[in-house]
């Protein structure tokens, strides 16, 4: 039993040995949920210690088109030595995307282009993530949010 506990503590100690970073798709976990037959909600869950740049965030849909440019929420203002005042997002971010035409039962690919950094002083290259969702039929409940990639691995994979 003591050996077992020691092994567990050893595993934890290794993790604390140095600065380690998340994969970009896990630092900036992207998911999409259909809201109705012409609206989807794009969501980022940004890990603690990481941030996304507002001006580098772009959404598009295929094969549909957006009714208008997405209304991005205001971010936190950051006074950057090189870029001046920039807005960044931390924590969670949700953006409703309205399609030009309703497409009940249709599949829509939602594409997010983003770029972010970690507070430890590292930036990730711009990345594009795609998620396919099915829009609900009239009177049907929307499906659960669909993640771009699994936000978490299982314990033993």
């Amino acid at each position: 039993m003591l050996a077992w506990l020691a092994a567990a503590l050893w595993a934890g100690a290794l993790d604390a040995a140095g600065p380690k970073l998340l994969e970009p798709e896990r630092a900036f976990a992207f998911s999409v949920q259909a809201i109705d037959d012409k609206t989807v909600e794009a969501r980022f869950v940004i890990a603690s210690g990481y941030y996304l740049y507002r001006e580098k965030l772009h959404f598009s849909v295929e094969p549909a088109t957006l009714a208008s440019s997405p209304s991005l929420p205001s971010g936190t203002l950051k006074d950057d030595e090189f870029f001046g005042k920039v807005e960044t997002y931390r924590g969670q971010l949700a953006v409703r995307l309205a399609l030009q035409q309703p497409a009940p039962g249709g599949k829509v690919v939602v594409r997010a282009e983003s770029q972010g950094c970690a507070d430890v002083g590292v930036c990730y290259p711009p990345q594009a993530q795609n998620v396919t969702v099915t829009l609900p039929l009239p009177g049907e409940r929307p499906e659960a949010p669909v993640a771009a990639t699994p936000a978490r691995k299982s314990w033993f994979n």
Partner: peptide, 27 residues
């Protein structure tokens, strides 16, 4: 006591594996 130790040990071990797999692979 054995049961308690077994549960604590399992949780700690699983937590260690989880931490390694979820966030802490070497960069």
């Amino acid at each position: 006591w054995i049961v308690v130790f077994a549960v604590v040990g399992f949780v700690a071990l699983a937590g260690g594996f989880y931490a390694r797999q979820s966030a802490d692979e070497p960069s």
